[in-house]
Design a binder for these strands. Structure first.
Length: 152
DNA sequence: GCCAACGTTGGC
DNA sequence: GCCAACGTTGGC
């Protein structure tokens, strides 16, 4: 089972929004970057995903969700009213994908970006690489374990 | 609010 | 195909 990390602004969708509806799949939509989209396409039901809070007061990994539905065309791309509308997308040739995810757990304590940067073994994780803006990325089993492993 | 780094667009 | 201009991301 593959593992992943996704970034989100908690004002948009936070781990608490998942926690409020523990049995309900929430669409992960609005991804408008090709590299991130390609990773979305590789997600399978059952995959676990770190939720990372960005552009906020407490930056870091806040919890875990899991994929309940693999990639399907993101409806927002067809909606002229949506900020995620893409006029170059058609139902025959959709450019963008969404997946559904649902709550697994909120971490007892946020794992801060600062801590992630200082952890050995995470140098290859795009999240901590200078200038990286990738919002959906794979996490290896080793990285996953390192991230959860120690909390000091 | 600032700004470095990045991705995309479009003229040539 | 190049690359300048522009818009966005995201930490600080």
């Amino acid at each position: 089972m593959a593992k992943w990390l996704v970034k989100t602004e908690p004002s948009e969708c936070s781990i608490d929004d998942f926690a409020k509806q523990p049995g309900t799949p929430i669409p992960w939509d609005g991804v408008r970057n090709y590299q991130a989209r390609n990773f979305l396409r590789q997600m399978a039901a059952g995959d676990q995903v770190f939720i990372y809070h960005s552009s906020c007061k407490h930056i870091g990994i806040a919890g875990i969700v899991r994929v309940t539905q693999s990639a399907y065309p993101d409806p927002a791309q067809f909606d002229p009213e949506s900020p995620y509308h893409d006029p170059k997308s058609t139902p025959e040739q959709p450019r963008w994908q969404a997946v559904d995810m649902q709550f697994v757990e909120k971490l007892p304590a946020l794992i801060s970006l600062d801590r992630l940067k200082n952890r050995e073994g995470l140098d290859q994780l795009p999240l901590v690489r200078k200038g990286s803006r990738l919002s959906v990325m794979p996490v290896s089993a080793d990285e996953w374990r390192l991230i959860l492993g120690h909390t000091t």
